Computed example of a mutant assay.
Amino acid sequence: MRMFSALNLLMLSVSYGATLKICSFNIQSFGENKISKPEVVDVIIQCIARCDIMLIMEIKDGRELAFPQLMTKLNSRYSSRRNEYNFVISDRLGRKSYKEQYAFIYRKRLVSVRDVYQYPDLQTGDEDVFAREPFVVWFSSPRTEVKDFVIIPIHTVPEAAVREIDELFDVFEEVQQRWTSENFIIMGDFNAACGYVPKSQWNNIRLRSDSSFLWLTDDSVDTTVKQSTNCAYDRVVLHGERMIQAIKPSSTEVFDFKTEYGLTEQQALAVSDHFPLGFTMGSVQRRGRRN
């Protein structure tokens, strides 16, 4: 009996949470034109369904009709009692007439949204740095070891990539003061390669020079569809000890839907010029107290 109890205590002293696959996808110029093409929508839906949280970028739909149609198609294909998708979406963001939206699609049974915050980009003396200000979302994840985390998304303007990536440090600090979460993911289309961020500029980017941030994606990863390009545009950056422990760098993947679904380059480019980028938040081992 004593041995049985000891074994049970040992088993209880180590517990593991569920895993969560988190992704980002710049669906180039997503709007009514793309949603009208079944073969394109089919690929987009399959990409989304691979993930538990999917950040969608470059929603460019002035009438705001395409994204609701995408959600209807997604839920009609994959929804069940155990698998149903919900979303949060930003206002249309941008300067003058050019506007985009960020959206997060997530599995309701795994995560929920605690709060959202549209970064105002109004710092005194440093106003209007971002063309598309981050739409920040605080997620609750009761089934994983990291119970809550914040995602800061970004789609930079290529020509302003260095300044916008650096300014994400200020966004992080403001959100950290605003909310109590210690777990942060900064992700999206940074345009952080191919001439937009010269090597000489990396030391001037606080998000890179501050050692408390972990970059899951290095400068050699290729997130572009065209065979003629090799650019690490899309990135993932982590902050928070627990968050960093929960994600293995080896889980980071660029999902090549062109190869996976047997598409030509032209067919793949009809979907997007970016591949989705994803990673898995695993469980953090918890050890009980030894006597």
Score class of each variant (00 low, 15 high):
Val197Thr: 14
Gly195Tyr: 12
Ser211Val: 15
Trp215Ala: 09
Gly195Asn: 07
Glu241His: 03
Asp189Trp: 01
Ser212Ala: 01
Phe190Lys: 03
Gly188Asn: 09
Ile205Ala: 05
Val225Ile: 11
Val236Met: 03
Asp222Tyr: 02
Ala232Arg: 00
Ser200Leu: 15
Ala232Ile: 05
Asp234Tyr: 07
Ser251Gln: 03
Met187Ser: 01
Leu207Gln: 01
Ser250Gln: 12
Asp218Lys: 08
Ala232Ser: 12
Glu253His: 08
Val254Ser: 00
Ile247Phe: 03
Asp234Gln: 13
Met243Gly: 12
Gly195Ile: 11
Trp215Pro: 07
Asp219Cys: 06
Pro198His: 13
Ile186Gly: 00
Gln245Gly: 07
Ile247Arg: 00
Pro249Glu: 14
Asn191Met: 09
Cys194Ile: 10
Ser228Ala: 05
Val225Thr: 04
Ser209Glu: 11
Gly188Arg: 00
Arg235Gly: 02
Asp219Gly: 10
Trp215Tyr: 12
Gly188Lys: 09
Val254Trp: 06
Val236Arg: 00
Trp202Met: 12
Pro198Arg: 15
Arg235Met: 05
Ser220Arg: 09
Asp210Gly: 04
Met187Lys: 03
Ala193Gln: 06
Ala192Gln: 10
Ser220Asp: 14
Arg208Ala: 14
Phe213Pro: 13
Asp234Phe: 05
Gln201Gly: 01
Cys194Asp: 14
Asp219Ala: 13
Ser212Ile: 10
Ser209Gly: 06
Ile244Glu: 11
Val221His: 01
Ser211Met: 13
Arg235Cys: 08
Gln201Asp: 13
Thr223Lys: 02
Gln245Leu: 10
Ile185Arg: 01
Gln227Phe: 10
Ser200His: 14
Ser228Asn: 00
Asn203Phe: 03
Glu253Phe: 09
Met187Val: 07
Ala246Gln: 03
Cys231Tyr: 06
Gly188Asp: 00
Ala193Gly: 06
Thr224Tyr: 04
Arg235Glu: 04
Arg242Phe: 01
Gly240Lys: 00
Met187Asp: 02
Asn191Ser: 04
Ser200Ala: 12
Arg206Asn: 14
Arg235Ser: 10
Val197Arg: 02
Arg242Val: 11
Ser228Val: 13
Thr224Glu: 04
Glu241Ile: 05
Ala192His: 05
Lys248Tyr: 06
Arg208Leu: 04
Asn191Leu: 12
Ile186Tyr: 09
His239Phe: 13
Val236Ala: 00
Arg242Asn: 12
Lys226Gly: 00
Lys226Ile: 11
Thr223Ile: 03
Ala193Arg: 07
Phe255Glu: 06
Gly188Met: 09
Gln245Met: 12
Leu238Cys: 04
Ala193Trp: 05
Lys199Met: 09
Ser250Thr: 11
Ser220Cys: 07
Ser209Pro: 14
Val254Met: 01
His239Glu: 04
Val197Tyr: 08
Val236Trp: 05
Thr224Cys: 02
Tyr196Val: 07
Phe255His: 09
Trp215Gln: 02
Trp215Asp: 07
Arg206Gln: 13
Arg235Asp: 05
Met187Ala: 10
Gly188Ile: 07
Ile186Cys: 02
Arg235Phe: 04
Ile205Val: 14
Val237Thr: 13
Ile244Trp: 00
Ser251Val: 05
Gln227Val: 08
Asp210Thr: 07
Thr252Val: 15
Gly240Thr: 06
Ile205Glu: 01
Thr223Tyr: 02
Asp219Asn: 14
Phe255Tyr: 15
Val221Leu: 08
Asn230Cys: 06
Leu214Thr: 13
Tyr196Ser: 06
Phe190Asn: 03
Arg206Pro: 09
